[in-house]
């Protein structure tokens, strides 16, 4: 996709400035190239779903956007921030205050109560007073239907409940954008719906969302734009109705046949418990 770097206000037709802009992203783990030149724009308020077979680099792409992984090549822009150029911790922190991330495995802090999981970021990072942060946390818990679990510990909650807490935790930071990484893939089929409902409401409220998902129906329903990736490349992208209703590429058609067939065959949601193995050890810190 050449010449996307359009000026902010071209004469005549003002194009909205993308909130997230990826250009020609290449990412390798050793000899294994997982992203082979991805370019993608996400406009403010848009919901973009990334679908595709397991191992096509979808989760890695999300991690690049929030600076958890650094691509070898390409540029990533979030708002005015060049993510691929960030080096210092303070810069990454400034970025991550604006970008929420919800993980497949929830990753709540097991030693903190639900409320404290939600309060930690706003108080420590955003410097908000504790009582104000608690008040907001309770409102968010209300919103995800878990007001009664404020004092519970993550280990006492079901997967679906934990994931809703994780979404509330991301929201507590009041981000401009939330990235969802296969957030229903580890859930029991019966709890998938409650998590999707929360995301659907967020999307309706105008939150900018990028979802990596295997829930085709859900993607079709909530997305403004759907991106089909395979083997580290974007095969096809477009409005949800077109991509699902009239895919242009044979590979997209084949994937959708398989994916929709599978989810028709069993229950309406096809859980895929594959864990994407990432060499994130490289990103661990030592004191």
């Amino acid at each position: 996709m050449p010449a996307i770097d359009a000026p902010k206000n071209p004469p005549g037709k003002p194009a909205p400035t993308p909130l997230v802009s990826l250009r020609d992203i290449h990412l390798s783990f050793g000899a294994n190239e997982v992203l082979k030149g991805i370019s993608l724009d996400v406009l403010p308020g848009q919901v973009v779903s990334i679908i595709g077979p397991s191992g096509s680099g979808k989760s890695s792409l999300l991690r690049c956007i929030t600076g958890l992984l650094r691509p070898q090549l390409g540029t990533i822009t979030v708002g005015a921030t060049r993510v691929d150029r960030l080096r210092h911790e303070a810069e990454l922190i400034a970025l991550r205050r604006r970008v929420g991330f919800v993980f497949q495995q929830y990753n709540l802090f097991p030693h903190l109560s639900v409320l404290d999981n939600l309060v930690l970021g706003p108080v420590r990072v955003n410097g908000r007073p504790r009582d104000e942060a608690e008040h907001q946390a309770r409102e968010l818990l209300q919103r995800v239907g878990l007001a009664h679990k404020a004092a519970a510990y993550p280990g006492e909650l079901s997967g679906g409940q934990q994931q809703r807490v994780a979404i509330a935790r991301a929201l507590a930071m009041q981000p401009e954008l939330i990235l969802f990484d296969e957030v229903t893939s580890a859930l029991d089929p019966e709890t998938v719906g409650e998590v999707l409902t929360v995301i659907r409401e967020l999307a309706e409220d105008g939150m900018t969302c990028v979802l990596v998902t295997h829930e085709m129906r859900f993607a079709a329903e909530v997305s403004d734009e759907v991106v089909f990736t395979e083997a580290g490349l974007i095969v096809e992208q477009g409005p949800a109705a077109r991509l699902f209703g009239n895919p242009q590429q044979e590979r997209t058609r084949a994937f959708l046949r398989r994916a929709l067939g599978a989810s028709l065959g069993s229950q309406s949601y096809a859980p895929d418990n594959k864990v994407v193995a990432l060499p994130i050890d490289r990103f661990r810190f030592a004191i």
């Binding site: 802090f109 990072v125 994130i280 990103f283 661990r284 810190f285």
Partner: peptide, 29 residues
């Protein structure tokens, strides 16, 4: 788990805070 580091980083916590507020308390247990 490194996922705990990742989650804490995503919440924009500093290394110091991640160690002090997320990792160490779990270590004590």
């Amino acid at each position: 788990p490194s996922a705990q580091w990742e989650a804490a980083q995503s919440l924009a916590l500093s290394r110091r805070d991640i160690f002090r507020l997320v990792v160490l308390p779990q270590c004590v247990r």
